[in-house]
């Protein structure tokens, strides 16, 4: 016997009245589909008869203990990260102090100083750019056609690429190293 489409209709909630009639007629004649329908009803019965289960009493208190433990762990993790950063920096500084000559030491200090200045300079420009971009977004009309968005995003991507390339090729780093 061909069970199609009846074996799917059994699980459809939105059947046309004509389809319901056809399905019922098939169920009368087909033991396999009838068994499937009975199984579907049994699954529903099992789920509907299962109540909302509750945890053991005192869940909220247990959660408070859990939350405090999580907070403590998060704090410990933060302290561990800061400590390892400090240790790493201290180790680098000690190594430089021990191994570098006076001239090399001065060059390194200049390099670090210049890198930091450059980083701050570029970070400042990034913030200004992001802010002006946000301003442009806020004054743009509410519905902009998709093609304009594609153009804008494409352009932004291109300039981001140029920007990254210029940082990579930034000459002052080489100047300091020379």
């Amino acid at each position: 016997m061909n069970h199609n489409p009846f074996e799917n209709w059994i699980f459809e909630d939105e059947l046309e009245p004509g389809e319901v009639k056809q399905l019922n007629a098939h169920l009368q004649a087909c033991p396999a589909c009838k068994a499937l329908k009975t199984a579907d009803l049994e699954a529903k019965r099992l789920m509907r008869s299962a109540s909302i289960s509750s945890p053991e009493a005192g869940f909220t208190n247990r959660w408070l203990v859990f939350a405090h433990r999580q907070e403590e762990q998060a704090q410990k993790k933060q302290v561990a990260i800061l400590f390892s950063i400090f240790i790493t920096l201290a180790a680098i500084a000690t190594t430089i102090l021990i191994t570098a000559s006076r001239q090399q030491g001065i060059e390194i200090v200049f390099f670090l100083q210049s890198s930091l200045t450059n980083f701050l300079h570029w970070f400042q420009r990034l913030v200004i750019t992001l802010n002006s971009f946000r301003f442009v977004l806020s004054v743009l009309p509410f519905r902009v056609p998709a093609i304009v968005w594609i153009f804008l995003v494409g352009n932004l991507g291109f300039w981001a690429l140029v920007w990254t390339f210029s940082i990579w090729k930034f000459p002052s780093i080489r100047k300091v190293l020379a």
């Binding site: 299962a50 909302i52 289960s53 509750s54 945890p55 053991e56 869940f59 909220t60 247990r62 959660w63 859990f66 939350a67 999580q70």
Partner: peptide
Amino acid sequence: NHRPVFNLCYRMLGSAEDAEDAAQETFW
């Protein structure tokens, strides 16, 4: 809200112990 949250975890994971842990994590 712990009762319905616990029940969802229980029906999803099938054990009360796992459901307790999952419900605690959910609220966290």
